[in-house]
């Protein structure tokens, strides 16, 4: 079983659109995991049926029982997060600031503080319109610990791949280099970067490449909007060669991606234009690369 993760560093490079097309091309040969749980968009292209839904609990929140509170302020003195607020000598929890560390509960002399586990999202197992199983999630607003939800989504995807005898798990990762991306990369066999030839695209690719190196995962890159700036394109290609990132393909700027999105379709099902042709070839290459053993130097 191979895990292929699609990430971008920078947001808005077309990662989810590309991911949607690969899901369509891979059809029922794969299991799809949408690990971009904080603003997940892939479901809009793949029409999942939300067969099974599970609540996701993570982290705790301090709850203060005013009847037991003697207003001693012990909680306030230990909290590092401005999670305890005092007004006119009485105390309350500022839920937005509480990190759920539980220090206040431990020092409260009257047991007035209880820690409660919070439901911070949901995750789903679906059958997607392309025929494959899709595991995806919705993280509640302002929730933390998205890395753990990503791990949960991936584990469920692995379970299904094993059960259904599927060779590939295709994973949509999130932007950035933080906990969600770390979690998406752990255990991956191949990384597909989707980037653009802009100063930001290159800057962010460099940072995320550094992260991927730490995981020793091989990688390739799709350059989207490749005709944006030829100088940046040269710089990007040079960087990729130096970093040992395979150049999978380049796609010129194409508003057909948006036209397809408006109809809730992936590009390759929407039309057979030049960008679709590039994506079809790219998917074949990626499947080959993923099969090749070895680590990124």
């Amino acid at each position: 079983m191979k895990e292929i993760v699609v990430i971008s560093g920078k947001g808005g490079t077309g990662k989810t659109s590309v991911m949607g097309s690969f899901s369509y091309l891979g059809k029922s040969d794969l299991v799809i995991a949408d690990c971009d749980v904080d603003a997940a968009d892939l479901h809009m292209l793949l029409g999942p049926d939300y067969q099974r839904s599970e609540d996701y609990y993570s982290g705790e929140l301090a709850i203060l029982d005013q009847d037991k509170c003697i207003n001693c302020g012990a909680c306030l003195s230990v909290c590092q997060f401005d999670g305890i607020q005092s007004e006119n000598g009485t105390f309350r929890i500022e839920a937005m600031n509480c990190e759920g560390c539980g220090y206040c509960q431990r020092v409260c002399p009257t047991n007035a503080i209880q820690m409660e586990t919070q439901k911070v999202g949901e995750w789903y197992t679906s059958s997607s319109k392309v025929g494959s199983t899709m595991v995806h999630a919705k993280l509640g607003v302002g929730a933390e610990n998205s890395g753990r939800l990503v791990a949960q989504v991936k584990n469920e995807a692995r379970r299904h791949a094993k059960k259904e005898g599927k060779e590939i798990i295709l994973i949509d990762g999130s932007p950035g280099i933080g906990c969600a991306v770390n979690s998406a990369l752990s255990g991956a066999d191949y990384v597909v970067f989707v980037t653009e030839p802009s100063v930001s695209g290159i800057h962010d690719l460099k940072r995320v490449t550094e992260l991927v190196k730490g995981f020793s995962i091989r990688s390739g890159c799709i350059i989207n909007k490749c005709d944006l700036n030829s100088q940046m394109l040269d710089e990007l290609i040079t960087f990729m060669a130096d970093a040992g990132i395979e150049h999978i393909a380049s796609i010129p700027y194409d508003e057909t991606f948006t036209a397809a999105m408006l109809e809730g379709k992936t590009l390759v099902e929407y039309d057979k234009g030049p960008a679709s042709q590039v994506l079809i070839k790219s998917w074949e290459k990626i499947k080959q690369f993923a099969e090749t053993e070895g680590c990124l130097k």
Partner: peptide, 26 residues
């Protein structure tokens, strides 16, 4: 970007927030 803890931290003491979006389904 996003809607999780880093965004909250970045905007919680702002007097005003500008949300930038694009006119697409995503």
């Amino acid at each position: 970007p996003g809607t999780s803890c880093p965004v909250i931290e970045a905007s919680k003491d702002a007097d005003f927030v500008i949300l930038v979006t694009e006119p697409t389904p995503f």
